[in-house]
Nucleic acid binder design. Structure first.
Lengths: 151, 151
DNA sequence: GTTCGTACCGCGAATATTAGCAATAGCGTG
DNA sequence: CACGCTATTGCTAATATTCGCGGTACGAAC
């Protein structure tokens, strides 16, 4: 990925931030690592990949937060641990997170648009679709007899 | 609240759990405290209210988790801190959480039904509406001139 | 009412993440 | 290319929450 960096650099610069070596490494690692990655995993990946760059774990956390805030990456809670993924992962997808087995499934939902529209119109609130994590119970974890009946 | 306890006790018993003094106190405190409460606040409330019951903070956390799991209370992340509220708080409401100011607004959304329906039909996944926290940016925090265009 | 199995409690240590501080290094300017 | 402003870094301490362990007590069965 030699020549798509400039765009990212501009985006970072545009938000009044700086493109530090650490930030670049983190982005790169996140771009390369498959699926969702934890802060610790990213830290390890960067340290393994490049030995001449010092990187504190807190720096990883801070950057992950900043990058998520500017929309370059997506963050969401995954059972006590926060995981991150490259935001430009092709198509927009949402997460169905099962409280039973803890598994997270990525799906594309049409109804989200209507929901986003309603919230926008009624409350002037703009939903961040990248952070849309839906919790509930998947088909496998729903016990046959157990009918929560919760609304 | 002298005589509505039996139902709750049954619900707790039904899930193979026991109605301990601590659990009851926590439920009671949560029922009485207005709005969302943190584990620490609940712990403080119980300790102030009753001096003859010892209660470790970890016990509060454990019970909060258990009670949320069985649907008696609702839990959701509120900026690094988890808050809880009585589940039978009248009407169903969802949370619009602003990433800018961190404020959480409680609203009723019609489109949620359609979303829930789609997810149920397409993936056999049952959304837990009580845990439905929607993140984004509220009208106040969306700067008029600053259009990041980072979408 | 006594007994018994086990869920639960309190305590303290572990884990994930955030915050504060002095030193460093982007990057726009002269 | 050196200079300066300040965002950022590494470090360490704090914070929120979870886990493991040995002792306790809930609740069901005698």
């Amino acid at each position: 990925m030699p020549h798509n960096e400039p765009t990212i650099a501009e985006a970072i610069r545009a938000s009044g931030r700086r493109l530090t070596i650490q930030r670049a490494k983190i982005l790169e690692a996140l771009h390369r690592l498959p699926g969702h990655s934890t802060a610790e995993r990213i830290h390890a990946a960067v340290c393994e990949d490049d030995r001449d760059v010092e990187m504190a774990l807190s720096t990883v956390y801070r950057n992950l937060d900043a990058l998520a805030e500017m929309g370059l990456i997506a963050a969401f809670a995954d059972g006590g641990v926060t995981t991150y993924e490259w935001a430009a992962a092709g198509h927009p997808h949402h997460h169905l997170q099962c409280d039973g087995c803890g598994h997270t499934k990525e799906v594309a939902l049409e109804s989200i648009a209507a929901l986003s529209d309603e919230v926008e119109r009624t409350y002037g609130f703009t939903i961040d679709l990248r952070h849309m994590a839906i919790r509930g119970t998947c088909a496998g974890c729903r016990k046959p007899a157990d009918d929560g009946g919760a609304r």
